[in-house]
Design a protein around this nucleic acid. Structure first.
Lengths: 131, 131
DNA sequence: GCTTGACCCTCTAGTTGCTACAGGGTGCAT
DNA sequence: ATGCACCCTGTAGCAACTAGAGGGTCAAGC
């Protein structure tokens, strides 16, 4: 099964530009070319790109994806490194959730304190102003 | 009270580079200069920069901060616009929290399914692989 | 009065992860 | 043969800074 970049893109929910970008930064190997100099992809590339996209959806950075790809190629290796990478990412996500939740509370309190009127007496602006 | 950029930075928890950046994008007006061509700031700038930093800490974008600053200058105006801006931002934060929470659940499940061993049998790698 | 060190200046380029052109070539159907 | 959808390369842009090069300024200490 041979695909053009557009077909591969549709199969993985990725824009052609993004695929070319992944190639440029070395996340995808340079594929073969057709007579008209079109990139041509097969099953292997489909699998690799799916992996990348899935990991991205889970919020892994491109650097983390790169590491995961490398680790996944070495099937005999202990998977503790993979585990650590995923746990590190989870911790990061949890920290972000905590930060945003604190933010949410502050914003909600600020908004609740505003009872209309003019900017001059607005509690939201006041809350942002000099302490 | 006259300050150099470094002093203003310390007072507001902002790096000098960031202050110059804010000036470049028009968030802070160009300040006066000392004999040696140093930027010199007073109370007004301290207030404005504090406002900016506080809003940034609450996750408002620079464009939103710009709008808030403009609104705050017109004390007689109805504060409904301010309120709407803040509510919009809160909604955005809440959406992000929901997204991250979904992510967190997926990551945690993935990690829980991994019971050690080699990469070849690693459930994390498997979960990322082709469906 | 001269040096040392901390500070300041401008300007440019890098970060992350794409996205959007501009200015072309290819391939297939009509 | 001509239109249209697709492909190619290369560059520039987004947010919100951050870091560095290559200089100038100022106060203190000797």
């Amino acid at each position: 099964m041979v695909m053009t970049i557009g077909t591969l893109g549709k199969a993985t929910g990725t824009k052609a530009e993004t695929i070319r970008y992944y190639e440029k930064i070395g996340l995808l190997p340079p594929p073969g070319r057709s007579g008209g100099n079109y990139r041509s992809y097969g099953e292997a590339e489909l699998g690799r790109l799916s992996f990348i996209r899935r990991a991205r959806q889970l919020g892994f950075s491109l650097d983390q994806v790169r590491a995961l790809l490398e680790l996944s190629e070495d099937r005999g290796r202990d998977c503790a490194t993979v585990d650590a990478l995923a746990r590190g990412h989870l911790a990061e996500v949890e920290r972000k959730i905590a930060d945003l939740t604190a933010l949410q509370r502050e914003l909600a309190a600020m908004i609740a304190s505003c009872h209309g009127g003019t900017v001059g007496s607005c509690r939201i602006i006041e809350a942002l102003g000099p302490c």
